[in-house]
Amino acid sequence: MVRQMRRFAVMLAGALTTALLSLGTAGPASAAPKPPPAGVDISGVGLPAPLRLRADTNPAGVIAVIDQVNFLARNGMTTGPKAADLGPKYTVVVLVGDTAKQTYDLYPKAAGGPRVYRPAKQPDGHKTSAGWFLGRLSMSETLRTVGVPLERQFDTVSGGVGGGERVLPEDTLDPARDLDEALGDLQRLLLLNVGVVLTITVGLAGIALLIRRRTR
Rank of each mutant, 00 (worst) to 15 (best):
residue 1 M to L: 04
residue 2 V to G: 03
residue 9 A to G: 06
residue 10 V to K: 05
residue 11 M to T: 12
residue 12 L to D: 13
residue 12 L to Y: 05
residue 14 G to V: 03
residue 14 G to E: 15
residue 15 A to V: 15
residue 15 A to T: 11
residue 19 A to P: 09
residue 20 L to K: 01
residue 21 L to G: 04
residue 22 S to W: 12
residue 22 S to P: 00
residue 22 S to G: 07
residue 24 G to Y: 03
residue 24 G to Q: 08
residue 27 G to W: 14
residue 30 S to H: 11
residue 33 P to Y: 05
residue 33 P to H: 03
residue 35 P to R: 02
residue 35 P to T: 06
residue 36 P to C: 00
residue 38 A to T: 15
residue 39 G to F: 06
residue 40 V to K: 07
residue 40 V to Q: 05
residue 41 D to T: 02
residue 43 S to D: 10
residue 43 S to I: 01
residue 44 G to P: 05
residue 47 L to D: 01
residue 49 A to R: 06
residue 50 P to A: 04
residue 52 R to P: 09
residue 54 R to G: 11
residue 54 R to F: 11
residue 55 A to Q: 12
residue 55 A to Y: 10
residue 58 N to D: 15
residue 58 N to M: 10
residue 58 N to R: 08
residue 59 P to H: 01
residue 59 P to W: 05
residue 62 V to M: 07
residue 64 A to R: 08
residue 64 A to C: 10
residue 66 I to S: 04
residue 67 D to R: 01
residue 69 V to L: 09
residue 70 N to G: 04
residue 70 N to L: 02
residue 72 L to C: 13
residue 75 N to L: 08
residue 75 N to I: 08
residue 76 G to V: 10
residue 82 K to S: 15
residue 83 A to F: 14
residue 83 A to E: 15
residue 85 D to F: 04
residue 91 T to V: 14
residue 92 V to D: 13
residue 93 V to H: 04
residue 93 V to R: 06
residue 94 V to R: 05
residue 94 V to A: 09
residue 96 V to E: 15
residue 98 D to S: 00
residue 100 A to R: 12
residue 100 A to N: 08
residue 101 K to D: 09
residue 105 D to K: 01
residue 106 L to F: 03
residue 106 L to G: 04
residue 107 Y to N: 02
residue 108 P to Y: 04
residue 109 K to M: 11
residue 109 K to T: 15
residue 113 G to S: 12
residue 115 R to N: 10
residue 116 V to N: 09
residue 116 V to R: 05
residue 117 Y to C: 05
residue 117 Y to E: 13
residue 120 A to V: 04
residue 121 K to F: 12
residue 121 K to S: 13
residue 122 Q to E: 10
residue 123 P to A: 01
residue 125 G to Y: 10
residue 131 G to W: 04
residue 133 F to G: 09
residue 136 R to P: 06
residue 137 L to Q: 13
residue 138 S to T: 03
residue 141 E to R: 03
residue 141 E to I: 00
residue 143 L to E: 08
residue 146 V to Y: 05
residue 147 G to V: 12
residue 147 G to T: 03
residue 148 V to N: 07
residue 149 P to K: 00
residue 150 L to T: 06
residue 151 E to Q: 07
residue 152 R to H: 14
residue 153 Q to C: 02
residue 153 Q to K: 01
residue 154 F to Q: 08
residue 154 F to E: 13
residue 155 D to F: 00
residue 157 V to T: 14
residue 157 V to C: 03
residue 169 P to T: 00
residue 169 P to W: 02
residue 173 L to Y: 03
residue 174 D to H: 01
residue 177 R to S: 05
residue 178 D to K: 00
residue 179 L to R: 11
residue 182 A to V: 04
residue 186 L to T: 09
residue 186 L to R: 09
residue 187 Q to D: 14
residue 188 R to N: 05
residue 189 L to W: 14
residue 190 L to Q: 09
residue 191 L to C: 00
residue 191 L to P: 03
residue 191 L to V: 05
residue 193 N to D: 08
residue 195 G to D: 08
residue 197 V to L: 14
residue 198 L to G: 11
residue 198 L to P: 02
residue 201 T to L: 14
residue 202 V to Y: 07
residue 202 V to L: 13
residue 202 V to R: 01
residue 202 V to I: 13
residue 204 L to R: 02
residue 204 L to Q: 11
residue 207 I to L: 12
residue 210 L to P: 06
residue 211 I to F: 05
residue 212 R to I: 02
residue 213 R to N: 03
residue 213 R to S: 09
